[in-house]
């Protein structure tokens, strides 16, 4: 390969590593999609359960959310990776990654859902109660359909932000873009190309995505 090259930037080398980096990018995207799914569902569950204010359950959830939000994702990744096996639960690094990202971001999305739910006027609850709708139907038929469209932009932003945190999983051996770049680089001792391309890949995906979310946001604000 171009290992002997001493120039700052070697185009041949750059092109030669793109296929491997793209494959790793696919893994990154998979993890983001799965992690977001966990975060969106779990966050909603947390928000709805917390809204019920069940004694003890509420305090425990509050404490869990606070601990997870205020401590580094990287530590949580290590935590799952090293602690779960002690309970006989040995998961692949990929699954640990999806779980860690999903749970971590669920604590963020639960706040988003809560704000969205709070933004539904009190009169909507009262009207639904006046119609004697069952509790579950109040949620699924009245409150959530009004709350969720409002929170979509914020959820989108969290998905994008999760995408950019997937590289943390290189610490437990997941071959996402940066890790792939590191492996390629350590074969050739050239890191400029892999890490620069990795940065560009993140930019070309996340920038248009956040523009899209911003558009969504503006449209939601007009409505």
């Amino acid at each position: 390969m171009a290992a002997g090259s001493t120039s700052l930037w070697d185009w041949d080398y750059a092109f030669s590593i793109i296929p491997d980096l793209l494959k790793a990018l696919l893994t990154t995207i998979e993890i983001t999609v799965l992690g977001s799914a966990v975060a969106f569902v779990l966050g909603l569950v947390i928000a709805v359960v917390r809204r019920a204010r069940i004694p003890v359950v509420d305090q425990v959830l509050w404490a869990l959310v606070e601990v997870i939000r205020s401590t580094p994702l990287l530590v949580q990744i290590f935590f799952l990776f090293f602690v779960l096996p002690r309970f006989g639960l040995t998961l692949s690094a990929f699954v640990v990654g999806v779980t860690a990202l999903g749970v971590h971001y669920a604590t963020y999305t639960s706040e988003v859902y809560r704000a969205g739910i709070d933004a539904v006027p009190k009169g909507q609850w009262e009207a639904a109660t006046a119609l004697s709708l069952p509790r579950s139907r109040v949620w699924t038929g009245v409150i959530l359909p009004q709350a969720i469209p409002r929170v979509l932009p914020a959820l989108g932003n969290y998905a994008i932000s999760m995408f950019k945190e997937v590289p943390l999983l290189l610490a437990i051996g997941v071959v996402e873009v940066v890790n792939a770049g590191r492996e390629l680089g350590s074969e050739t001792f050239r890191f400029t190309e892999p890490y620069t391309i990795a940065g560009v890949l993140f930019l070309v995906l996340s920038y248009p995505a956040s523009m899209l979310v911003r558009r969504l946001e503006r449209r939601a604000a007009v409505r």
Binding site: E165, P167, L170, G199, S206
Partner: peptide
């Protein structure tokens, strides 16, 4: 602003730690 918000912090760290010294 968009350059730093659009790329991963880990990439930025590796870039500054491993690539910048070469430059």
């Amino acid at each position: 602003v968009e350059g730093f918000r659009g790329t991963s912090e880990v990439v930025q760290l590796f870039w500054i730690y491993f690539v910048l010294p070469v430059l």
